[in-house]
Structure formats: C-alpha cells, structure tokens
Amino acid sequence: MPGWQAFYEKHRENNVIVVAAAIDIQGAEAARPYIEAADAEYVNLIDANNLLGELFGLRAVPNTLLIDEKGRFVGKASQQEAEVWAQTPVGAPIEKADPAPATSLKAVEALSRALPYDAALHTLRAELYEREGEAERALNAYERAVKLDAKDARRRFRYAKLLLQLNRKKEAAEQMKAALKLDPKNYIIRKQIWAVENPERFYNGGIDWGWQRRQTESGE
C-alpha cells in the first residue's frame, strides 16, 4: 500500500481520509501481514466477497476510488488525480444518513418457495443465510442456484468464497474456475485462483512476479 500513509498525513486537515480494502477471498488472515507491516493510521477493511469489485465493476487491483463528503461516488482515479482532488476545497459537513435497511430472510424464503426455479432468489437467500452464519443452508441455496443457472460469475465467486471458508478448497477452485470462464478478463478472480492453488508463490517472502507472468502467458 505504497504512499497512502503519506497521502493520509498530507490531506487529513482537508477532511480527506484513506480507507484501504483488501479484496481477498481468503479473508483477514491473508491480508493481515501486509496491513501490520504497513503500520498505517488509516482505516483497513477486508472485502472477502468482492463486494467492492462488483460495485465498481473492477476486474483487477489496485484501484483508487473517490467518494465525496455526501457519500457520492466521484469516480476512479490515479494516485496523482487523487492528490489534486484531495486539495480542492470542500463544502460544509452534512448530516449522516440512516443506515440502509436489511432485507428480510423470511420474505426471501417465502418468495423462493413460491418461485422455486428462480436462481437469483436462491442466491439472495444464500447471501442472507451467510449473514446469519448458517453455512449449510447457504451452501444448499448456492448449489440450487448454480444448478438452475450456471452462467453467473458473481454467484459462483460467492459460492467459492463460502466453500473456501469451510476449507473445501478443491470445490472452491472449481467454482472460481467456472466463474473465470464466464468472465475471462477478470483478474480479481484469476489471481485469486492462483493464490489459493499456489500459496507458495504469494506468501513465502514476497510475490513471484515472474511466475505470474508465465501463468498469464500460458493462459492459466
């Protein structure tokens, strides 16, 4: 996370903060060594479901995304563009919004019973079971959704994350590979597969860039 601590110190007087989010299906433990080594004052979050990737349509990392003081997305930026943006004057602080309402699991279960062939409802149900910590039910719901509609990369990625959490690495890799086939230019999925299948190339004293280049060239 080069340069962000300096950016944070330089611009915090101007009401700018830095939030770093690790898009990592493997969760906090994969990201922790890097965050602890950076020893930064800014906020560090873990995005194991690639929520931010979906939200901003990201297909690779890293990215810098700017959000204004009213909570509106400004756009993607280079670090240089972020510097210019951070120095522009800001408006008066505004009131905080109410948190977004939560979707009712009971309602989605009822809809899913009435419309049992609807893959998106099973996916939504799975995501809500995950929220409740009901892993087995979530797995069943993802499985039904994938059987009904095999062509949704987002669904397979989330299914893979849950499988990985349950230490079912082989099945997780299968789902991720299927997701990549559906979205072949998505380097978030591609490199995540490499990291899960070849941890020694990533987590033993630095990232093996030469190996990654060869992987890309061989089309893996």
Binding site: M1, W4, F7, H11, N14, N15, V16, I17, V18, V19, A20, A21, A22, I23, D24, Q26, A28, A30, A31, P33, Y34, V43, L45, D47, L52, G53, F56, L58, V61, P62, N63, T64, L65, L66, I67, D68, E69, K70, G71, A82, W85, A86, V90, P93, I94, K96, A97, P99, A100, I188, K191, Q192, W194, A195, F202, Y203, I207
Partner: peptide
Amino acid sequence: GEQIRLSSFIGKRVALYTWASW
C-alpha cells in the same frame, strides 16, 4: 472483525484504495 459501515464516513471525503495480498 468489527463491521464498519461506509455510511460512517459520510461528512469526510474518502480515497478508497482496493488492493489484495495476491
């Protein structure tokens, strides 16, 4: 493991940096 809501940053301008361990 503490959940942080993006709405808790409203009132501040945010440079959101996404990265990964891989």
